[in-house]
Each structure stands twice: as C-alpha cells, then as structure tokens.
Amino acid sequence: MTATVSYVPAPDAAPRSRMLGAQTRMELRLLLRNGEQVGLTLVVPLLLEVFLNLPLLSSLGGSRRIDFVVPSVLALAVMSSAFTGLAIGTGFERKYGVLKRLGATALPRSVLLLGKTLAVLLLEVLQVGLVCTLGLALGWHPHGNPIWTALLIVLGTLAFGGLGLLIAGTLRAEVTLAAANLIWLVLLFAGGIAIALDSYPAPFADVARYLPSAALSDGLHHVLQNGGGLPLGAALTLLVWSAVALPAATRWFSWE
C-alpha cells in the first residue's frame, strides 16, 4: 500500500447513461453467473418445452401440440425472470445490505431499477431466442406479428416485475423466496400457462383469466398460435397490473 496517487477531491456523479450501462451489465452478469437463476430462467423453461410437447398429455391444444407449447413456455419464461428471479434476487440483495450500500453512492434509485429492468429484458431476449430455436427444432410454426409478441412480453415484464419488486421490497428474503417459488408453481398450472383455462370449471376460469399469467399466456397464444392481432383484453389486463404493482412497489419498497 504505497501512496503515490493523488486523492484531491473531484466529486461528481457520472452521466446517467454511463451508470445505467454499467448497472445493466453488472445485473445481467450476476443473473447469468447465478446457478439457481440460470436454472429457473433458462433450463426449466426448455425442459418444460420438451416435456409439454410429449404426446402423453393429450389434453393439450388441438392438432399441433408444439404451437400451443411455445407460447406457454414463453409466458413461463417471462414470469420466471421478471417475477420469481427478480423477486428472489432483489430480496436477498435487500437482506444482505446491497441496496443499502448502493444507496450511499451517486447511483439514483430510478437508474438502479431501470438497470434491473433492462437486465431482465436482455435475459428475456436470450430466453426467447432459446425457446424459439428449440420450438423450431421441434416443428413449431410461428404465426402472428412479432411486434405484438414483443409488446405483450414487455407489458408482462412490467406487470410481473412490479409484483416481484413489491414482494421483495416488503417481505423478508426467506419469505420472498418461498412465496415467489410457490406463486410461480401455482400460476404455472392454475394460472393459464401450462394448462389452458378452458380445462377448468367456468367460475374459476372466469376469474383466473385476469391473472397476469393468464393474460400474458392468452395474449401470446392469440398472436402466436392463432395468428391474431394485438389482443386488447390481455394487453389491458397486463397494463392494469403494471399500473397497480409498479406504484405500489415504489410506495412500499423498503430499501433496508
């Protein structure tokens, strides 16, 4: 530790764009370095894609099983990274004082949250690429407009991200871990992702339709399976979830 360096103060914050770039890179790097995150967001969706495509579950879809499976798995992928992964990661960062420490730097919280969001979106690009590639290999025929698909994914990310941050910012990390995994599992099977809601009794299905998982999954099936235009109902449902969850997360998020 020899001192030849000058410490003459020159304190100033970096431009936000530089902070955002560095923050996003760090968040993404950590997501890809964390084994559990990779399992949750990349491995499990691909395994499910193969599994759901097996002919043993004959109740799925109509003639072309893979055309049903790919939109479902895309919805699952978004829920995994934007909700479960983000909630668990953020919950433990909060527990271990990461958010507190970052709070003592020039990094504004808005840039931190934006960086997390961008990292999740970039991870989703990777997820979508892998899921679609595997789908094509399994004989998937994509329909519909990719722009509507992208729009639905972004809306789904905002809705799920808001909910994930709300949980992570208000509950203890251990509770967040359990809740985020449990909700993931419940929504996967009862939230219109792996099993179409039509297979459930009407009163339940009518309510469950408004879950973010169902809205995202429905919307993606509408576009990708049926080649439909932008599904307004689904988009609106996701928008409402975002409009509730994001301000709530901002309002109640406690950083320590």
Partner: peptide
C-alpha cells in the same frame, strides 16, 4: 469498476 462508473472522475 461498477462504483467507478457512478463517478464523473
């Protein structure tokens, strides 16, 4: 490096 990116100089 991350913390350095928060600062102007």
């Amino acid at each position: 490096d991350l913390f350095a990116a928060y600062a102007a100089h």
